[in-house]
Amino acid sequence: MLEDHAKLMTFFKQAQEVVGRKRLQKMVYILKKCGYDFSERYSFHFYGPYSEELSTRIEELCNLGFLDEEREKEKGYYQYRYHLTDRGAGFLEQAEVETPDMIDVIDQMNNQSSKFLELVSTMLFFDEFSKDDVEEKVRTVKSKQNYTEQDFEEAWKFIEELTVH
């Protein structure tokens, strides 16, 4: 019961803090692609893989007082900062879910910008294709981003180094 909520809270516990909704979306997607068991379903939206289910579940966790969401005004937009509350930690202690160690992947992602994670998650979305086709597909669906050869090289390197669960 509430296992899906608990799995997400495990992620927040290990990440300690997540800044930005886009970053959060992409981090959970990349973790899923690494084999971690999150049930939130993703589909392709205008700006890459996105999960409506994840957005709603985060809203629920905030409403339940398990997760704290702080809204900060940045240059012309709002940014959201998330961390697990004491009540959330209390729930997690009693929840019967596996708590896999995601720290390595979370650390790898924390060192990157959300724009970079957006590129990586979009490439992973097309992972059934060959390397060349992935790049072509990403350039087609995200033509406005004007990704360079170097961006792709760095993203491939990052993907190769991802720790698969």
């Binding site: 886009k22 939206h45 700006y47 709603t56 937009y77």
Partner: peptide
């Protein structure tokens, strides 16, 4: 929970995601 449902209601754009 409501997040178990495959429907949503309108929310304005979200950091360019929707």
């Amino acid at each position: 929970s409501s997040s178990d449902l495959p429907y949503d209601f309108y929310r304005p754009g979200e950091e360019e995601e929707r």
